[in-house]
Amino acid sequence: MYNLLMTAGEDDWDSPTWSLSTGRYLEHTVQILRNRFEILSPDTLQQLKQMPALFAYEDFRDQPATVGRITEIQQLQHELRITLAIDPAVTPIPQAVLRTLYQDLDINTRNLEHCRTHWAVKDIDLVGVLVRANLINLPLLPPQPRPPKVFISYSWDSPEHRQWVALLAGTLRSNGIDATLDQWHVRGGEDLAGFMERSIREADRVLVICTEAYVERAIGRQGGVGYEHTMVTGELMRNVGTAKFIPVVRQTSRPATLPTELNTRLYFDLSPGAEYPTQLQALIRDLHNVQTPIPPLGPNPFQ
């Protein structure tokens, strides 16, 4: 079996996450498989993530499809949000080539399945179809690592600062980091406190954007910043050695100031200046857990 995810969004599969209306899950899926996968229990979620996935575009887009895995599935009130990883060993499949495989892949053109954004589960050996079409020469597609998931905590200092945070989050996403930001992920009517708690809990790392205003509000436990920082403090107290929370400084005054709970932590300084590109690259490396190479240990010159 395989997952077929089809979208009309331009360049959707260049992003590490994708959202789909809950009602379009299991469209164009035979009834026996609908019965099997319609309830998204932990076991079902695990089965879906173990299957290979074909990430395709609706026919009019004329963009290549890619192959990989679903690495995470988040159930929201009215939609499903997935995290995906593309398999670098599989060359993107041009739309013209994919069209010739629709029948073999059980993509029903009579019902205009190739023209509909949806998520289907197909009882087809995706790897076998691709091997017979000379698109891959692997007997199995290995699991793909999940992109690092990052939540950004910040204060709404000004419209300019909100835009700066959004640009930072966009830069992280373009570098393979699944950044969560309230500006993108909070829907009208959604409970903000619940969003903060869930995002901090589910994130691998939390970036704490430390402007002067953020530090002041965190120390004074003011507003949303104060509430978020109370959660941060609670987790730090439960796990003193955690490296989950990363201070990111954006300040004009010097020396830089941090909330009391974070002032002994290594921070990245993204304040305007010549060091910004270097510090940003170091942050991205850290989020991907790419260690700085350590020179080899040489022999004792006195022996």
Rank of each mutant, 00 (worst) to 15 (best):
Q77Y: 04
P293E: 07
A169V: 12
G226Q: 09
N3K: 03
A85M: 01
H78P: 11
A282R: 09
L167H: 14
A8K: 10
L270R: 11
L138Y: 05
G223L: 10
R34D: 01
R217Y: 04
E197W: 04
V97D: 13
H161G: 12
L287M: 02
E197L: 06
V67T: 10
A203D: 10
V121P: 04
T233Q: 12
R36Y: 11
G224E: 12
A193I: 13
R36E: 15
D191F: 06
L80Y: 09
V186A: 14
A96W: 01
L280P: 06
T230Q: 13
W18G: 02
N175C: 06
L33M: 09
E113L: 00
D106N: 12
R69C: 06
V225M: 11
I177K: 06
A179C: 08
R265S: 14
H118M: 03
E10C: 00
E58V: 12
V129M: 05
L283A: 07
I32K: 14
G273D: 05
H161M: 14
R162A: 15
H185D: 15
S174Q: 13
Q103F: 01
A274D: 13
P247C: 10
K244C: 08
N134T: 05
P92T: 03
Q251G: 08
D12F: 05
P42S: 10
G223F: 04
Q77T: 14
N300I: 00
Q291E: 06
P139W: 01
R69M: 00
Y2C: 11
Q47C: 11
V127M: 04
D14H: 04
K244L: 11
D11I: 05
Y267H: 14
W18T: 03
Q74H: 12
N175P: 03
L4R: 07
S174C: 07
A65W: 00
P64N: 00
S21N: 12
A89Q: 03
G170V: 07
V206P: 08
C115T: 06
A203K: 06
P52M: 00
D62Y: 00
D191C: 15
H161P: 06
S271A: 13
T117L: 01
L280E: 06
M51K: 15
L5W: 06
P139D: 01
L5P: 05
A213P: 02
V206E: 05
K149Q: 13
D104N: 09
R36V: 10
H118Y: 01
G170A: 14
T66G: 04
R132F: 03
A166Q: 12
F245P: 04
H114W: 02
I152V: 14
V225P: 10
R238H: 08
S15E: 13
V240I: 08
G188K: 14
T260Y: 09
Y102L: 05
D182M: 09
D204A: 08
N137A: 03
A133W: 06
R116V: 03
A166R: 13
L266H: 12
A169H: 12
G189E: 05
